[in-house]
Write a protein that binds this DNA or RNA. Structure first.
Lengths: 258, 258
DNA sequence: ATAGGCTATGACGTAGGGTAAGAGTCAAAT
DNA sequence: ATTTGACTCTTACCCTACGTCATAGCCTAT
């Protein structure tokens, strides 16, 4: 004396749409126990139970594919699945937190008429000589206009971003130093140089400007060979690295200008 | 002497894919300033700036359609858009927090040796007809919400919790039965009914919901008078008890609703 | 002239269904 | 017996924001 539910009945019971049941049948996630000769889907209690389980995992934002795997494989490591999912959720939460920070800053700035981060803040924490050097170079060669930042740049630059940018820059710098004996034109080196270029533009606050500033960037490369303070690593001068870097940058600029 | 960027150049500068630029062109979000005779897209500085703005809002998870509206309408209330978006993000964050709570509880219980509790287990020890009846009633009358919450509840409930709940329910049930000949409105009876109500809400998995579900609860009382299987005690039907209980519940609900 | 790199359009795929269209099925009321 | 109305079936296009081919045209260097 089995109770049979039609699609609509089951859908109503579980609070999902008929289309959903059709879909679940189609992808093999929940198949009706019987089909009438007319092709009607009939479900029984066990399908109802399975549907409940499905809805539970769905509430936890599991993709349907994973739900199927979990339910169909009794030996499935549910705990690991849940933990992985937890990590994903945490990451999403982090991201949302960042977005909220940015959005609140933006609202604030828009209301204030848009004041932004200062250069002092930008260079905060970096060796003073380097900061001074870069800023002076920028100002002398391209004037105030070039140093002006776009609204975008300022709005998206939270202190956390800045911190991240700084460490990313340091990382890449080390990477470049490690390449010192390689071919300056090799793809790996050029890749790192491209990143360096983008980071430098960010430090200059000109990342969103149309002018790519190739000349300026090339000058920076030459500056490294003339002023060895910039290529000090672990308190130790490194003229070979400066030479290497200058070549790599020159190559990069030439390739880009084509 | 305008600088022109090809798709690939622009894509590299901005860190997006060529496909993305094709798409933005297609949907009118970012059109190239020029097309060569061969159909090649050429972008200028102003497109680069616009693209930066687009990417800014995209980072904030705005849908492309909204970004277009924001950028194309200079009178657009950006602050309100941002605030609305902020609210949406907060809601998403809340939801994720809830999911995390549930997922952590679930992991905890699974680690405790709790396999997922089944409905059989939930109703284990209780007369089968009752189990069936309650479950069916819940599904038919309140559908998805009740069922889903119930599932959640199940997963976050240890066997000890469940056992305790069951015995407490049985105790209270006996207590109520013993009152059968008293005044349904008397304080003692009403006290027991209140407990019964709370327990029922726990079985339904709706104990933490703001909605008190008075109607549903009253229905349950009436069901007792119509289906005497629910009020069987020691294998013996008890219509008088059912009547009594129905009245007591009705009184309780009326008092609470005031 | 040919190779190799860039570009174009078009089409299909993603997750989880919504929203039909067109046609068949079933039970009850006429 | 037939019509109505409620269901049901399959097929198939729509949504986001692109990724990933496939095929073909364009451009430049050797």
């Amino acid at each position: 004396m089995k109770k049979h539910y039609s699609v609509k009945q089951l859908a109503r019971l579980a609070g999902v749409s008929v289309r959903t049941l059709h879909l679940y049948d189609e992808i093999g996630l929940l198949k009706p126990s019987v089909r009438t000769e007319a092709g009607y889907r009939l479900y029984e209690e066990k399908e109802l139970l399975r549907l409940q389980q499905i809805l539970f995992y769905k509430e936890l934002d599991f993709p349907l594919k994973d739900i199927g795997d979990i339910l169909d494989d009794p030996g499935f490591d549910r705990i690991r699945a849940l933990e992985g999912h937890r990590a994903a959720l945490l990451a999403r939460k982090d991201r949302i937190d960042n977005l909220l920070t940015t959005i609140e800053k933006t609202i604030f700035h828009l209301k204030k008429g848009g004041v932004m981060l200062s250069h002092e803040e930008l260079y905060e924490g970096l060796p003073k000589e380097k900061a001074e050097g870069w800023r002076k170079e920028a100002w002398e060669r391209w004037g105030k206009d070039a140093v002006e930042k776009s609204e975008m740049q300022l709005l998206t630059m939270t202190r956390e971003d800045l911190k991240g940018l700084k460490t990313a820059f340091a990382d890449n710098w080390k990477k470049l130093a490690a390449f010192s004996n390689s071919d300056p034109a090799s793809p790996e080196v050029q890749e790192a140089v491209r990143l360096h270029y983008q980071q430098i533009r960010q430090f200059w606050g000109t990342a969103s400007e149309p002018d790519p500033q190739w000349k300026a960037y090339k000058c920076l490369g030459e500056m490294y060979t003339q002023d060895h303070r910039y290529t000090v690593i672990d308190g130790q001068s490194n003229p070979a690295f400066a030479e290497f870097l200058c070549k790599a940058i020159a190559h990069f600029v030439e390739e880009e200008q084509k």
